[in-house]
Write a protein that binds this DNA or RNA. Structure first.
Lengths: 144, 144
DNA sequence: TTTAAATAGGATAAAACTATCCGAAATAAG
DNA sequence: CTTATTTCGGATAGTTTTATCCTATTTAAA
């Protein structure tokens, strides 16, 4: 469904949110370890999220990544996916047509519209707070 | 959502079905032109569909691709997707965890389950006949 | 039987995605 | 001020996906 980069990005964001709740800044090394992702590749993705102002970074000793506490509940999965994979999950045609809309639909346009809209709704309504709390309470997991 | 190969495979199958209805066998060249896909790459995909017995091929002059008329209505999108992309659309975790189930869910497991199941249902219930008839009646389109 | 038209399939190339490496810059602590 | 730590960013490598090329094989028609 998503690219590897996006998967890492979502998991990293959740882990950062989880710690930012406790006012703890986390390093790349720790993030990569906790979400089981390649460190250098994860660094690139985090840089991307920083550029998109979804997470904050602090350079130097005792630096790392964090999310402002008051923002955690308002950051939606859609923002993360959008920052990394772009927005063709929403707009793209299921069969790759350049133009595909109600007036000029591809053969599976109607079938995909439903599913795509639900995916869109899910991504736009799911926020980092929910996901982080489930990790915290041991309901869900970021690795293995 | 799907790979390029899968997109081409679905469109090609629809175009072949459309013509097989009229008892017309179509060539690779014609298919690629009508679905706006790269010819040589499309050839590979068609070979794959032939190996999976989803379509038939006839070599030599006046050869081409066809689908037995009586099979058109029973070929589901799921079979095509499965032949080309495999079945990890169904089984894979949304965040790439090796193990992700109700007992050990990833953070977005519940959210994805719903969407994945609907996608699965859609693919398993949509058949080539429906799609081909919409093309024939000008309701939907295979290119531009 | 020869020829032209097609698919089959192996080899290869190009592009995109995933991943790694290393030096630069920033920052806190000693 | 120096040092250790840590992110940033450019360069590069590996892998997968997408795409192309070329030859072999098959088949129908002349």
């Amino acid at each position: 469904m998503f690219s590897k980069a996006c998967e890492y990005g979502i998991k990293a964001s959740i882990y950062i949110a989880l710690n930012s709740y406790d006012g703890v800044r986390v390093s790349l090394k720790e993030i990569a370890k906790e979400i089981n992702s390649p460190e250098a590749f994860t660094a690139k993705i985090l840089q991307d999220l920083v550029r998109h102002k979804i997470i904050n970074s602090v350079k130097g000793a005792y630096g790392g990544f964090e999310i402002e506490k008051r923002n955690i509940a308002s950051i939606k999965l859609a923002q993360i996916v959008n920052a990394i994979d772009g927005d063709n999950i929403y707009h793209g045609c299921g069969l790759g047509l350049d133009v595909c809309d109600a007036n000029h639909p591809c053969p599976v346009h109607d079938q995909f519209i439903t599913i795509r809209n639900e995916l869109k709704y899910m991504l736009e309504t799911t926020n980092l707070e929910q996901l982080a709390l489930d990790i915290k309470s041991g309901v869900s997991f970021l690795k293995i």
